[in-house]
Design a protein around this nucleic acid. Structure first.
Lengths: 109, 109
DNA sequence: ATAATAAGACACCTAGTGGTGTCATGTCAA
DNA sequence: TTGACATGACACCACTAGGTGTCTTATTAT
């Protein structure tokens, strides 16, 4: 569950509902310390901290120390990888297979 | 890795790179049997079959029997859940926090 | 009829994931 | 300055996930 040093798969990072909720909380509040995040979950502080470490490894979250607390902030940019990958499929789904070869060609360029 | 009966988290289903590649292959080929899918991976047929079972449980893939082979087909519709969830964040990221409260209000309606 | 092919169903193994609790350290308030 | 607070850093544990191999059954080709 750790892996703080090396880069992490963004897909895997958002695979966990707890981590998605964390992203949601951070999106709404802009910057939050660990203990304030923790109260929204039914798990211990350590567990939440580990989830944040995973989000950090995927660069979905940045942190800075502020006195005795560590404030976390959202960085949504890596989500674009997912957005791109997924809209590829949903576009295909919306427009029908006739358009797929076109999409594939555009991708090669 | 199994869980074929109950519904599966779509996010978790696409968290694995093997499964994303499966979706990609199915998007390009429209319908493929297990053994043809298997040749694209460096793992056994059983493993690929299990991955397909997970995609099935998330309703990302449909299957039908055709003679002695089982043909798999993409169903990209569940991906819209991810698309929606992710664009919520990326939109926030693109437009700046000024627009976030607006996005949140729209969501409540 | 027989042999080869495709796949389902298991049993099994290993590493990773998501939790826990505890201890040590730095910071703030009284 | 003393105690409470916030966090980091571990050690630890159960369960799941991603693989493997084997056996059986249904289907097709010769």
């Amino acid at each position: 569950m750790d892996e703080q040093h090396e880069a992490r798969d963004v897909y895997a990072a958002v695979a966990d509902p707890t981590r998605r909720k964390l992203l949601r909380l951070l999106a709404e509040a802009d910057e939050l310390p660990l203990h304030e995040l923790t109260v929204h979950f039914e798990m211990g502080r350590t567990a939440v901290s580990k989830h944040l470490a995973i989000l950090k490894a995927a660069d979905l979250v940045r942190h800075r120390k502020a006195g005795r607390e560590t404030r976390y902030r959202l960085n949504a940019e890596p989500l674009r990888e997912i957005e791109d990958g997924v809209t590829f499929h949903t576009a295909f789904w919306n427009q029908g297979s006739a358009k797929l070869s076109q999409l594939l060609k555009e991708e090669e360029e």
